[in-house]
Amino acid sequence: MRRSIFLAALLGLALALPSAAFAGVVAQINLSSQRMHVFVNGKPAHTWKVSTARSGYRTPTGTYKPYHLARRHYSSIYNNSPMPHSIFFYKGYAIHGSYETKYLGRPASHGCVRLHPSNAARLYSLVQRYGAGNTTIRITR
């Protein structure tokens, strides 16, 4: 009986603190603040400015897993624009580096999540190290 109570309590704790129990990378993007918080093995690792969808476009909200990584990618829709260190997470949406760094911290994209190129390289490296299956991308309003 005591063992059952202990196991139930342990399970409850694991469910209450999912990021602490998660071994891997979590990228939390907040559309309102235009910030990304990166957690590695449940611990805060980075906070970066991002640019998400400007008026007339949308960045999808929800929880995703990366499905494709591309160190060098060029947009097939928007004038062959460079998208260094792309992490694709939903249809054609990606987190990627942008050379339009003056816009970081405010909505400016066609829907992707833009990062400073050096931060995109760091995130890309983390996703490679821990694996796409151990990476979660969470986008909230």
Results as ranks from 00 to 15, higher is better:
Arg58Pro: 12
Pro60Asn: 02
Cys112Thr: 02
Ala21Val: 10
Arg106Asn: 09
Lys65Glu: 01
Ala53Met: 07
Ile77Met: 12
Ala94Gln: 01
Arg35Asp: 09
Ser109Val: 07
Ala45Pro: 00
Val50Arg: 03
Ser125Asn: 12
Val40Leu: 05
Gly56Glu: 14
Tyr78Cys: 08
Ala14Cys: 15
Leu13Ile: 15
Lys91Gln: 09
Arg2Ile: 14
Lys43Arg: 09
Ala20Asp: 08
Thr59Gln: 06
His96Asn: 11
Tyr74Cys: 15
Met83Gln: 03
Tyr124Ile: 05
His116Tyr: 06
Pro82Arg: 00
Glu100Gln: 05
Thr61Cys: 02
Thr140Cys: 07
Met36Lys: 04
Ser32Phe: 09
His37Arg: 14
Lys91Pro: 00
Leu10Asp: 11
Arg2Pro: 15
Leu115Ala: 04
Gly131Lys: 08
His85Glu: 08
Lys49Met: 03
Gly92Ala: 08
Gln28Arg: 14
Pro18Trp: 03
Tyr130Gly: 10
Arg3Asp: 15
Leu11Gln: 09
Asn134Ser: 10
Gln28Thr: 12
Leu31Arg: 08
Arg2Thr: 14
Arg114Pro: 05
His37Ile: 09
Thr59Glu: 07
Ala9Cys: 13
Leu31Ser: 04
Ile95His: 01
Lys43Ile: 02
Arg3Gln: 14
Leu13Cys: 12
Tyr93Leu: 00
Pro66Ser: 00
Asn79Leu: 07
Arg2Met: 14
Ile137Arg: 03
Ala21Asn: 07
Asn80Thr: 03
Ser125Phe: 03
His96Lys: 06
Ile77Glu: 15
Ala23Lys: 13
Leu126His: 06
Ala23Phe: 11
Ala94Asp: 03
Lys65Leu: 00
Arg71Ser: 13
Ala121Ser: 06
Leu31Val: 07
Ser118Ala: 10
Gln128Pro: 11
Arg54Met: 14
Asn41Ile: 01
Tyr78Asn: 12
Ser33Asn: 10
Ser98Thr: 13
Ala132Cys: 09
Ser81His: 02
Ala8Val: 13
Arg114Lys: 09
Ala70Val: 04
Asn80His: 08
Cys112Gln: 04
Tyr99Arg: 08
Leu15Gln: 11
Val26Met: 12
Gly105Ser: 08
Ser109Pro: 10
Gly105Arg: 04
Tyr93His: 02
Ser81Lys: 04
Lys49Pro: 02
Leu123Glu: 01
Val40Met: 02
Thr52Gly: 05
Ser118Phe: 03
Arg54Cys: 13
Ile5Arg: 13
Met36Ala: 12
Arg138Gly: 06
Phe89Ser: 03
Arg129Gln: 15
Leu7Gln: 14
His85Ile: 03
Val40Thr: 05
Phe39Asp: 05
Ser19Phe: 07
Gly56Tyr: 12
Ser109Asp: 11
Arg114Gln: 08
Ile139Tyr: 03
Ser118Pro: 01
Tyr78Gln: 11
Pro60Leu: 05
